[in-house]
């Protein structure tokens, strides 16, 4: 069982190839023919300073443990890591998977301040800092967000955290077509409303726009009223509904059943064309149409659809040798970082 940095260094030195595994909540990332470096034993909160808005935690710590500790102090991880019940914090960062609440303040990259790492040569060091503001040196901590453990192994992570809001209200707007729902999300972009989340959910007929407002209990009813009136006037939805029991609405993977599940990064302008090609698959778009989750039967088919639309995807569930879908990721800058941090190509 890997319990500390020294164990990791020894593992790296002992193996010609390896791949990093947290708690295994995204099985498609682990179909690699190389020994797994299992970090699920590397657990625990190292330092939490609520008054500093900073948290340092070991990479294999269960997300739910981290989130519970923050919630006790009325704080949260604003990048809203996905799979809170089964993922590790390191895995959430390495795969850059965020849920709907990422809409308000940003993704993992916007909240990772620093990391302790072991690189492909077995060397241990820290990157970034431990305070909420730091401009010294190259920001390798940000680089590692989304890097799937292929450049260096994150052993400890420091985050900026925020105070959470006391209460939420959610609204559902129905439109006769996906294009109308997308137009409605455009209309909200330059508006005065600060939404906690804004998702677009295509249905068998038409589509829904789901919006979430967070804030003080006493101001929410009036804000919800103002928001509802604005959307109704600006975008003419077929139906408006204020959802009372709203928290379950924001598990953006709920109902996305099927053997394959993938995240897609897109620009809203690409949404309609992509969605037409995804006909039949279960899907939901988060971040006002800038990110999407697709469940389908065949990962090969999805790979092909994404490549044709000039997009990239990451498979979380499904049976393919490489979880990266669509356009290839090759990049000259990334290749030079790889050659520096993992010259022997051990980390796969």
């Amino acid at each position: 069982m890997i319990a500390n940095e020294k164990d990791i260094q020894a593992f790296v030195k002992a193996h010609a190839r390896l791949h990093v595994r947290g708690r295994g909540s995204k099985p498609a990332l682990h179909q690699v023919d190389a020994p797994a470096l299992d970090l699920s034993g590397l657990r625990g909160i190292v330092d939490y300073q609520p008054q500093e808005f900073t948290l340092t935690v070991r990479a294999g710590t269960a997300l739910r443990e981290v989130m519970a500790a923050l919630a006790e102090q009325g704080q949260y991880l604003p990048f809203d890591p996905l799979l809170a019940d089964s993922a590790s914090i390191g895995g959430a960062v390495a795969s850059n998977l965020s849920g709907s609440r990422r809409h308000r303040y940003g993704g993992a990259r916007d909240f990772v301040l620093g990391a302790s790492v072991v690189d492909g040569t077995g060397q241990a060091y820290t990157v970034g800092g431990k305070v909420v503001k730091n401009a010294a040196g190259f920001d390798l901590a940000k680089f590692l967000v989304g890097s799937l453990g292929r450049y260096a192994i994150m052993t400890e992570l420091t985050f900026k955290v925020f105070p959470d809001v006391p209460q939420f209200r959610s609204l559902r707007f129905r439109y006769e077509a996906l294009a109308a729902a997308l137009e409605a999300s455009y209309a909200l972009n330059g508006s005065r409303f600060e939404l906690d989340a804004l998702d677009i959910v295509p249905g068998a007929v038409g589509a829904e726009l789901l919006a979430r407002l967070g804030g003080f209990r006493e101001t929410l009813p009036a804000r919800v009223e103002g928001f509802s009136q604005f959307v109704s006037k600006a975008t003419a939805p077929q139906q408006v509904e204020v959802i009372q029991d709203e928290s379950s609405l924001w598990d953006c993977l709920a109902g996305l059943n099927g053997p394959c599940l993938a995240k897609v990064t897109l620009a809203p302008r690409q949404l309609l064309a992509l969605d037409a090609a995804l006909d039949g698959a279960n899907r939901r778009y988060t971040l006002a149409g800038n990110s999407g989750f697709v469940a389908c039967e065949d990962a090969g088919w999805l790979d092909d659809v994404l490549a044709r639309h000039g997009l990239r995807g990451l498979l979380l569930r499904g049976d393919v040798p490489c979880p990266l879908l669509g356009l290839p990721l090759e990049n000259v800058l990334a290749a030079r970082v790889k050659a520096t941090l993992d010259p022997l190509g051990k980390l796969v």
Binding site: N96, G107, R109, A135, F138, D139, L140, A141, K142, F143, L144, V145, G146, S147, L148, R150, Y151, K263, T265, L266, A267, R269, L287, A288, N290, S291, R312, G313, L314, L324, L329, N331, V332, L333, A334, V337
Partner: peptide, 28 residues
Amino acid sequence: TEFGGESLDGCGIGPDLVGLFVGSEGLF
């Protein structure tokens, strides 16, 4: 080279090259 794009998800999938380049003080 190019990285990231028009998505508010930034680099989204793969390492955050934008995050690495910003703050590199013109050394890259």
